[in-house]
């Protein structure tokens, strides 16, 4: 009896956690994620090193926001931001690293 109760408690806690994780994103959250991605992408543009998949994810995120699919917008914006961040890192690193590749 006691064991059944404990098992039930565990399952309930698990379900609560899952529910919290899967909670739908709000418009505000999607908007914030998109702004963060746009900021990174603007920096990549300033360094003249935008990546195609970052730009594509950003466009898709904007479209998802427009159609009020906030979960998808948040996820895509997150992806765009991560890609844009790597493109910025690449550009900064290459500011000096390119010289190592020069034929001498």
């Amino acid at each position: 009896m006691r064991r059944t109760w404990r098992r039930c408690a565990l399952a309930c806690a698990g379900m609560l956690l899952l529910a919290a994780g899967a909670r739908a994103a709000t418009e505000a959250e999607a908007g914030a994620a998109l702004r963060a991605a746009e900021q990174q992408q603007a920096e990549a543009a300033r360094l003249r090193n935008r990546w195609i998949p970052a730009e594509a994810a950003l466009k898709a995120a904007r479209e998802a926001l427009r159609t009020r699919d906030y979960d998808r917008a948040t996820e895509l914006a997150g992806r765009a931001e991560a890609l844009a961040r790597r493109s910025v890192e690449q550009a900064r690193e290459q500011e000096t690293a390119w010289r190592d590749a020069v034929i001498r």
Partner: peptide
């Protein structure tokens, strides 16, 4: 122009030189 040619760019992290040198 030289910097561009030797700089790694894009998601694949390749420079022009990676392929053409």
């Amino acid at each position: 122009g030289k910097r561009f040619f030797y700089s790694r760019r894009g998601q694949l992290n390749f420079s022009c030189a990676s392929c053409h040198v």
